[in-house]
Design a protein around this nucleic acid. Structure first.
Length: 294
DNA sequence: CAGAAGTCCTGGTCGC
DNA sequence: TGCGACCAGGACTTCT
């Protein structure tokens, strides 16, 4: 369940280990991993081969790598269980290996650095995948043009977000998960930020005052930055790792997954409620439901 | 048109 | 022990 901080760690890994390398061969081992590439796996492989990769970029939980000398990019999303790994070319295939990218220097043996490695997309549940798209004039893959900037983006407009939030006719957690309003916030960090803000997940966005929405946004940022700080150091290795071992589950969570455990603020047992085929975790005392709640 | 609900997918876990 | 039900959940598609 990689969230934005984990995806950023992956982006840094890609920047370090695959930027500047030229694709020699692509193997698509599962069609679902390229389902967002309409022309299919064979086309995906053919269009990638021979191109040099640029510097990986990120918006929300999307990653993309521009192809040098083209106006297109490889777009990636890790979904729930996806990993992008830089592995020695002779390492055994992972059980759920979906896509392999070999580079022109992949077989360079024992040379120092990235040479001798290949890029692998591994994904158990295949919610994630890779695809190739034309860029917009902004250099963004066209299919993610509707994705809002994320709160760690220096160009994120706090005032505009707060104004848009209050105009929505929905509840606050739905809004936090709406990728056209703010990107990169998943179920876990939404619950964490709401707990820190002492807001119930069904609070109507229209009832949030400006200070309350500012506080909420601040907590979203804090949660992400804390996770980034914790996970960012675990990556000083050959592996572009995104899964639990990279410290993701080591970070302390105050709300998510803590049903029946005492609230870290007031000691009241935390609760879990079914919500949109998921769960919402909250403190029934610190996060009071809205009065007119259905 | 905005907002809400349905859908995809697999492996781990739990109850009977 | 075996089997089926259930759960995880991001983002797209379909609905109201």
């Amino acid at each position: 369940m990689p969230e934005l901080p984990e995806v950023e760690v992956v982006r840094r890994g890609l920047e370090r280990w695959v930027a500047g390398r030229t694709v020699a061969e692509v193997e698509v081992l599962h069609p679902r991993a390229v389902r967002r590439h309409p022309a299919g796996g064979v086309d995906f492989a053919a269009r990638l081969t021979g191109h040099r990769l640029g510097t990986a970029m990120r918006r929300g939980k999307y990653l993309w790598i521009p192809l040098a000398d083209t106006d297109s990019s490889v777009l990636g999303h890790l979904g729930m269980s996806g990993q992008l790994l830089v592995q020695p070319s002779d390492a055994p295939d992972e059980k759920h290996l979906r896509i392999r990218v070999r580079f022109t220097d992949s077989d360079s043996g024992s040379a120092a650095g990235a040479a001798g490695t290949e890029l692998r997309f591994v994904d158990q549940r295949t919610f994630g995948g890779l695809s190739l798209h034309d860029n917009t004039p902004d250099g963004l893959p066209d299919v993610i043009a509707h994705i809002a900037r994320d709160p760690l983006d220096p160009a994120f407009d706090d005032a505009a977000f707060q104004a848009a939030l209050r105009l929505r006719r929905t509840t606050v957690k739905r809004a936090l998960l709406d990728q056209s309003l703010i990107s990169g916030v998943g179920n876990i960090y939404a619950d964490e930020a709401l707990w820190r803000s002492k807001l119930h997940y069904e609070r109507p966005t229209a009832t949030l005052t400006r200070p309350r929405s500012a506080e909420l946004l601040g907590h979203v940022r804090d949660v992400m930055n804390a996770a980034l700080a914790a996970g960012g150091t675990s990556f000083d290795s050959l592996y572009v790792n995104v899964n639990g071992e990279s410290g993701y589950f080591d970070r302390s969570l105050d709300a998510y997954g803590r049903e029946d455990e005492p609230c870290r603020r007031c000691g009241t047992p935390m609760r879990r409620r079914p919500w949109m085929n998921r769960s919402s975790y909250f403190c029934p005392r610190c996060q009071r439901p809205p009065r007119a709640s259905a």
